[in-house]
Every structure is written in C-alpha cells, then in structure tokens.
Amino acid sequence: MSLRLTIFATLMSATAAFAQVAAPGGPGAPAAPGARPLPPAPMPYGAAAPLPPPAPVAADSTATGTVVQFLLNPNGDADGLLLNDGTQVAFPPHVGDAVGQSVKPGDTVQVSGWRAPGVPVLRMQTLSANGRSITDQPPQPGAVPRPRAADSGLSQLSASGRIERLLYNDRGDVHGVVLSDRTIVRFPPHLAAAMPTELKTGASLKVQGWGARTAQGTSLEATAVAGSNGELRPLETGPVPRRPL
C-alpha cells in the first residue's frame, strides 16, 4: 500500500512541474504568437525618478578685446561690456562703478571668468585694464546700497532703429538688443523667444518702454513693440498660461 502511495505522489509531482513549465505564461514558457511583452513594473511610490542627462557645465574662460560700449540695465546701471569680437562681458551692477572708473570705450581689456558652451556671454571674475585689476566680490554685509544711476526714477522712452546685435543672458537666452544708435532695449527672455521675426540682426525695431539716459548710454525695458503695420502693441508682462484642453 505504501509503495502505491509513493508512486502516486511521484507522478503528481512530475505532472505539476510539467504544467508549470509548459503552461502559457508560466516561468520559462515561450511567448505565444502575437503576444506583446509585458510593460515594466511601475516604480514604487516615493522612489526617485531617473535623472535627466546632465546639462552643459560652464567652464573657465578668458577673453581679450577692445571695449565697444557699456551694456546697461533699464535703471541705467552698467552690468556688462560689449567687446569688438562680439563677446558680451557680464558683471553685477555693484561692480559697474569700478569698471566705469577704470575702463572707457576704445580701451583693451583682459577678462577671466566662466561661460557656458556656445554662449557669447563671459561672466566676469577678474578684469584687467590700464594697469588696474577689478575682481567681482559680493558687497560687504551691512554696506549701504549704492545709488542707482537714474536718481530721478525711470522715464518713459521710445526707440527705433536697426538691430545691430542680440544680447544674451548666461544661459544663452536672448534678453535684449543693441540698436544702430547704441540704444539698449531689454526684453524678458520668454517674450524675446516669442518674437523671432522682430528680434533678428538687421531687422528694424520700434519699441516703447521705461528706462534711463545716462552718460554711458540709453537703456530701456520694452513694454510695447511695433508690429508689421507700425502700430505699437503692448507686451505681456508674464508668461502666457496654457489654456486647458
């Protein structure tokens, strides 16, 4: 009797093993014709998502050239230099006073700092000119804020002319232009990206906005730009939200 039970148990075990291997979807079973592979298992809740490829990292860089003009923000403060080879040297406004006292258009400068690949903007760390060296250092804690160049406040200004050069920020986004009369017109990057036809070298531009005229030049933040019919149209002040589908 026990021999019969042993043989029966052995046969049942072999049958179950065979069914597990041969049954569709069982471990090791070949996929049925036309079957689709299973999607990957969902990530557990709270698990970190795969990281995107790393963005290009800004690298140390240097430039030597002749100063064409100061680059000004709409307050009239110098926050950069335009060199004759097209390099745009950028620095914070609190450094602009020292640069303005040591440099003038036509001078040769040597600049060291960093820039992102393919971007014509060199973020200044040290600038040397006329036997002097200027280093970008943060203001001392508790220091009195520097007075702005436009002490009387911003004025409503208009500008028109041919675009001579596009201005970029550190990331390579267009955020302004230099007109043929050296007037600097600034735009928020998201608005500049929405005007590829108007903002290109050689195109004519007519704008209205708020800015300042100083001894170093004229700069304004555009609030309206002329369309193809020549009429000024207001610019949006912020990114346009997406409409619901």
Rank of each mutant, 00 (worst) to 15 (best):
G76N: 04
T64H: 12
L51A: 11
A63F: 09
V119I: 01
L122S: 05
H94C: 11
L51C: 00
A47W: 11
D107T: 05
L51W: 00
L122H: 00
R36T: 14
A48T: 09
G100H: 09
G131P: 03
A63L: 07
D85I: 09
A78G: 07
L38A: 13
D97Q: 12
A41I: 08
S61V: 11
P33H: 06
G76R: 07
D77V: 02
L83T: 05
L83N: 03
A63K: 14
F91G: 00
P92K: 02
A129Q: 02
P30N: 07
S128E: 15
T87N: 06
P44Y: 02
Q137E: 13
A55Q: 15
P52T: 00
N73E: 10
A47E: 09
P27Y: 00
G96N: 00
P39Q: 05
A49M: 15
P74R: 04
D79I: 10
G34H: 06
N130D: 09
Y45R: 15
N84L: 10
G80A: 10
Q69T: 13
A48F: 03
I134C: 01
P93L: 01
P44G: 03
N130E: 06
D85G: 02
A35I: 08
A22I: 13
V57G: 05
A98H: 02
Q101L: 10
D77G: 01
P56G: 08
V111P: 07
G46D: 03
L38V: 12
S61N: 14
P37V: 01
T87V: 08
D107K: 04
Q137N: 13
S128Y: 06
G26Q: 11
Q20D: 11
S102G: 10
Q125C: 01
N75F: 03
S128F: 10
V67H: 09
